[in-house]
Design a protein around this nucleic acid. Structure first.
Length: 653
RNA sequence: GCCGCUUUAGCUCAGUCGGUAGAGCACCGCAUUCGUAAUGCGGGGGUCGCGUGUUCGAGUCACGCAAGCGGCACCA
């Protein structure tokens, strides 16, 4: 006999090796019917699995949170069966659960298209209606491979080979259709229900490697209830509405055009925001002992050979030579900078540096260009020309830890100023492609690891941390700061990279207290990362409804009749004089029309002026997203807007 | 870069079987001076992404290229 402990603490003695299904049946008829899987000792398992020893047991019903991933996983299997039934000869590969749904990768000479979805979904519903049980069996490695070879499923044969030797080769049968699977599954296909939908087709490399063949991936979403599915679809539509490319056009912030793939044309309004962002960062850096510099856009490629970038990243760099055939240095190849570090090392190297000058913090809003793969480009989020809020800190090894913590404070407080509270810090360790000795990497990673622990400890559990093995830069380990936006998407923005290599490669040194030459440690760091991308994130985070200090046009003064034109200009000028970005709409249009137009372009404050206001030196204020009207004197309005429009770093308290 | 899809007016989109292009908004003009999300009337605007081919004839069909979109891969 074994003892089972239920979530409520109740215990029960049962025969050794009974299944959760039998336990459920022994508790009640209704539980037997509702049970779809079980959690044994914290692990999700099949309902039919025998329970070998004393354990905690939770019977999972379809309504439980644990069932959702099973619904999705089971749906992936049903998708594969449906596809093979409809399109014989299609090979199946893998079909995992992902956030909000599942996908399945198929190999077929003809690609699928969304036009195939209705037929596939119909077939899936048929299979679900059959409500066949999922039954598990195991095969030996050879049996498994023979089984798939016989069916021409060559990708599956490869998968069998990839399963670690100590693991069972498990199969799930769902009414005759059988797939290799680690499990677990619910007890029958009928439990999947109807709240699923195929979403899109896409290409994906077999086993995630671009050297492998391309498969066709079908993505689906699946939920416990139709209501959840509908909520998800609605959320997607909402996300689409705040797409920064759409808002960028509607708000007249920027554009792209064919002659400049991946480079931004910033319009006056977008550039106003860009400048606000830079000025905010600049003020913060000034107070923290950074010196702003500017290094050349174009430098002889030898500098990048020295840094190692030419070796690793040549394919992703823009080269440049003089265009005239008669040019004196026609033979020389320059590179447009993809990074600011070599430039900053040159500034550090210029003149003899003393340990007294350390830490030396050189900051630059550096425009860099990278030849990103065409398929990677995505609005402002991934571009070929962008501006980094970059800085390099030259310091001693002893100062490194403290500098990393200061950078951490700067990054976290910056994100807070923009309303990002949920942040994850990840430590990326040495990649395969790297420079420098293992001893140097050991030291750097050790210190970074300790700093990471300190960051987590000091945040009181608010900041989550993680390790990304092998994801570091080629010259050193790095912290990646990932923030979560208003609709739950994660973005990697800030980064801190510790570098024991580049200063040495460039022959940078300082004179120490002992009178000898020492190589400094270099810390690379960015807060926003790319200003373009950060603005894209802000646009989507705020859905265009920016806080007043960031809004491209802060105030629009609208007249009701032309009688008030002169007064409206006076109001606008008063606002401008107070440092606000204001404009006046004196067009001969109805006030409804003006209110609508400026609301559509998301101007946060509309000041309406008519005869009444003109006579009283007053305004009538309307805020974006509200229909409320507030009458107040012009002086009051200016004072209130100046107060509200003050950037967070300049506010008192 | 890879797979798939898309590209028609500034924007959103229609355009049948291959017969020489259309709407709404925007823009311009006139009228209207009006109190918080679209005033009316009139007008101008397109080498149908670029190129080649098929055809008597191409926005429409084929091929190539480019850019964009959705993924994958990549992201110093």
């Amino acid at each position: 006999m074994i003892t089972l402990t239920f979530p409520d603490g109740a215990k029960r003695e049962v025969e050794n090796g009974v299944s959760a299904a039998q336990v459920a049946a022994s508790i009640s008829k209704s539980l037997e019917k509702k049970a779809v899987a079980a959690v044994v000792n914290g692990k999700l398992v099949d309902l039919a699995d025998p329970i070998p020893s004393d354990a905690t047991l939770k019977i999972v019903t379809r309504d439980d949170a644990e069932a959702l991933e099973l619904i999705r996983h089971d749906a992936a299997h049903v998708l594969a069966e449906a596809v093979q039934e409809l399109f014989p000869g299609t090979q199946v590969t893998i079909g995992p659960v992902i956030e909000n749904g599942f996908y399945y990768d198929f190999f077929r000479n003809e690609p699928f298209t969304p036009a195939d979805f209705p037929a596939i979904e119909k077939k899936m519903r048929e299979i679900i209606a059959r409500d066949k049980p999922f039954t598990k069996s195991t095969k030996t490695r050879e049996q498994a491979k023979d089984f798939f070879r016989a069916k021409g499923e060559m990708f599956k044969v490869e998968l069998v080979d990839a399963i670690p030797g100590n693991e069972d080769i498990k199969f799930y049968d769902q009414g005759g259709w059988i797939d290799l699977c680690r499990g677990p599954h619910m007890n029958s296909t009928g439990k999947i229900g109807g709240a699923f939908k195929l979403m899109k087709v896409a290409g994906a490399y077999w086993r995630g490697d671009s050297k492998n063949p391309m498969l066709t991936r079908i993505y689906g979403t699946a939920w416990a209830t139709d209501k959840d599915l509908q909520a998800y679809v609605t959320a997607l539509e909402e996300a689409e509405k705040r797409d920064h490319r759409k808002l960028g056009r509607e708000m007249d912030l920027f554009h792209f055009q064919e002659e400049g793939p991946g480079v931004v044309f910033w319009h006056p309004k977008g550039w106003a925001m860009f400048q606000q962002l830079i000025q905010y960062m600049r003020r913060r850096l000034n107070r923290l002992g950074y010196d702003e510099v500017n290094a050349p856009q174009l430098l002889d490629k030898s500098l990048w050979e020295t840094s190692g970038h030419w070796g690793w990243y040549k394919e992703a760099m823009f080269g440049a030579t003089p265009a005239g055939e008669e040019a004196e240095d026609g033979e020389r190849t320059y590179a447009i900078k993809p990074m600011n570090c070599p430039g900053h090392v040159q500034i550090f190297k210029h003149g003899l540096r003393s340990y007294r000058e350390l830490p030396m913090r050189l900051a630059e809003f550096g425009a860099v260009h990278r030849y990103e793969p065409s398929g990677a480009l995505h609005g402002l989020m991934r571009v070929r020309g962008f501006t980094q809020d970059d800085a390099h800190i030259f310091c001693t090894e002893e100062q490194m830890r403290d500098e990393c913590l200061k950078i951490n404070d700067l990054i976290l407080s910056t994100y807070r100023d923009f309303g990002f509270e949920q942040i994850v810090v990840k430590l990326s360790t040495r990649p395969e492609k790297r420079v420098g000795s293992d001893a140097a990497w050991d030291r750097a990673e050790k210190i970074m690891g300790e700093v990471l622990e300190q960051i987590a400890a000091e945040s009181g559990g608010k900041i989550k941390t993680a390790i990304n093995p092998g994801e570091g830069a080629f010259y050193g380990p790095k912290f990646e700061y990932v923030l979560r936006d208003a609709i739950g998407r994660d973005w990697q923005c800030g980064t801190t990279q510790v570098d024991f290599n580049l200063p040495e490669r460039f022959g940078a040194f300082y004179i120490g207290e002992d009178g000898n030459k020492h190589v400094p440690v270099m810390i690379h760091r960015a807060i926003c990362g790319s200003m373009e991308r950060f603005l894209g994130i802000l646009i989507e985070h705020f859905a265009g409804h920016f806080p007043l200090w960031l809004a491209p046009v802060q105030v629009m003064v609208c007249t009701i009749t032309s009688e008030a034109d002169a007064y409206a200009a006076e109001v606008r000028d008063a606002l401008k004089k107070a440092g606000l970005r204001a404009d006046a709409d004196l067009r001969n249009e109805k006030i409804n029309y003006k209110v609508r137009e400026h609301s559509v372009t998301k101007v946060p404050v509309i000041l309406v002026v008519g005869k009444r206001e003109m006579e009283e030196k007053a305004i009538n204020m309307r805020r974006l997203g509200s229909q409320e009207q507030k009458a107040m004197s012009l002086a009051e309005a200016v004072a209130a807007l100046v107060q509200e429009g003050t950037p967070p770093d300049l506010r008192n308290g």
